[in-house]
Computed example of a mutant assay.
Amino acid sequence: MWRRSFLKIILATPLGRLIAGIAASLATATAIYLDISHIDMRKPQRISGVEVFLPYPKLRGTVSVEEALANRRSVREYRDEPITLEELGQLLWAAYGISETRYGLRTAPSAGAQYPLEVYAVVGEWGVAAGDGYLAAGVYHYEPHRHSLTLRKSGDFRRELYRAALDQRWVLEAPVSIVFTAVFARTTRVYGERGRLRYVPMDLGHAAQNVYLQATALGLGTVAVGAFYDEDVAEILGLSEEETPLYIMPVGKPAAYYKLSERELVQYYERRRR
Rank of each mutant, 00 (worst) to 15 (best):
R274S: 13
G124F: 01
L26S: 13
D132C: 06
G97V: 11
Y199W: 08
I32L: 14
R79D: 02
R271S: 10
R17I: 04
E264H: 08
V171Y: 00
G192H: 06
I236G: 05
F184H: 09
Y120M: 11
F157D: 02
D35H: 10
G155S: 06
P44L: 12
L204Q: 13
H145T: 15
A113C: 11
Y199C: 01
P144K: 14
A164R: 12
S48P: 00
L7Q: 08
L34S: 13
A174Q: 11
L220I: 05
Q90S: 15
R159Q: 05
I36E: 13
A108T: 03
P109N: 09
Y103C: 02
E118T: 04
Y162M: 13
D40I: 03
R263Q: 12
R271K: 14
Y56V: 10
F157E: 10
V251S: 08
D80W: 05
L246T: 01
E231Q: 13
Y257N: 06
H147Y: 06
V179F: 06
L54H: 08
L260C: 01
L91I: 09
T222M: 05
V211E: 02
V225T: 13
Y269K: 08
L54Q: 06
I10P: 00
I47Y: 05
F228M: 07
W126M: 10
P109R: 15
N210V: 02
Y212V: 00
F157N: 13
T150G: 11
V233L: 12
G226L: 07
S37A: 13
D80I: 06
I83T: 06
H206W: 06
V176W: 10
V223F: 03
V122F: 07
L151S: 04
H38S: 14
T30V: 14
I10Y: 14
A185V: 09
F6Y: 09
L246Y: 04
L91N: 08
Y258R: 12
Y229H: 11
Y120K: 12
E243C: 11
T62V: 13
A207L: 03
D156C: 04
V119W: 04
Y268K: 15
Q45D: 05
G49S: 02
G221L: 00
R273K: 13
